[in-house]
Simulated assay, not measured.
Amino acid sequence: MTDPHLPAVIDERRQLINLAYRLLGSLSEAEDVVQETYVRWYALSERQQREVAAPGAWLTTVAGRICLDLLGSARARRERYVGEWIPEPVPDRSDWLGGPAAGDPADRVTLDESISMAFLVVLDSMTPAERVAFVLHDVFRYSFAEVADIVGRTPAACRQLASSARRRIDTSRSPSGAVRTEVVRDFKRAWETKDIEALIGLLDPTVIATADGGGLALSFLDPIHGGEQVAQAWMEISTHGPAVTLLERTVNGQPGLVALIDGAIVSVYAFDIAADRITRIWVIRNPEKLRPWTAG
């Protein structure tokens, strides 16, 4: 018998990927969550499926609860991770080199401010309940009554969780897209020309650079603090590392860079910028996190 809910259920896939990616910061885990959500849907009997008044809400509730469970165990998994953990970067669809892999979940992630690397990093500092409550309510506009059903707390408690999370998000100093593009372009030019003074001028004195190699690619394990220290590190990379080609690309909806060696992407660079200075640099080198960029 054909599932009468099939069109509605399939149509929810993009929404579920978007939700799970923002909650977990991992495309591969988001895809796993969505697959498990559909497994649970089709484990229902036909009668049980017919009793579901709103399949989309049912799927979102299940996916949200799975994400909540995964977030609860994330700390133990991060303790086994080699070096710093950074969310998986997502390319703009038009920026794929060679085109996306068939069925790649990145093809279904909507790019907006709520997946900027800075935003995802702040989300990662929240408790699992804060993160779920905030993303569901503030990003996806679910009511606190609906959030409560997913988180397993009262609507009032979910309102407090979202409020606590909201205080950590600061977009007051966020510059325009044009300013971001120009700063990243100037950073690229200074790096390519080995102009350390220009680099220092583009970096906030309190800038932090963090790299994620996951033990699978060479990278600095500890974050680098300070404009002069970060500039010096980039000069070392430029002088003593292999020759790279730098390209401007959209990374999580923001101007960023990718580095290629012999035509293959080996690093993705995301930036946070306040006024006209770079305050954070995230370097993703773990090849498992570069899958959407290297598939083709």
Rank of each mutant, 00 (worst) to 15 (best):
P55V: 14
P55H: 12
P55Q: 12
P55K: 12
P55S: 13
P55C: 15
G56A: 07
A57F: 12
A57D: 15
W58I: 12
L59W: 08
L59K: 08
L59E: 06
T60R: 15
T60G: 10
T60E: 15
T60D: 11
T61S: 15
T61G: 14
T61I: 13
V62C: 08
V62Y: 03
A63R: 02
A63T: 05
G64K: 09
G64I: 13
G64A: 13
R65M: 04
R65N: 03
R65G: 01
I66E: 07
C67M: 09
C67I: 07
L68I: 10
L68N: 06
L68H: 06
L68Q: 14
D69L: 12
L70N: 03
L70I: 05
L71A: 12
L71T: 05
L71F: 12
G72F: 10
A74Q: 12
A74G: 01
R75T: 14
R75P: 06
A76M: 04
A76K: 04
R77M: 11
R77F: 07
R77T: 09
R78V: 06
R78H: 11
R78L: 14
E79P: 01
E79A: 11
E79K: 09
E79Y: 06
R80D: 04
Y81K: 04
Y81S: 04
V82F: 08
V82I: 14
E84A: 14
E84Y: 09
W85F: 13
W85A: 08
W85K: 06
W85V: 05
W85E: 08
I86D: 01
I86Q: 00
I86A: 03
I86W: 00
P87K: 10
E88N: 07
P89Y: 13
V90S: 05
V90A: 09
V90D: 00
P91K: 08
D92P: 04
D92G: 15
D92E: 13
R93M: 08
R93G: 07
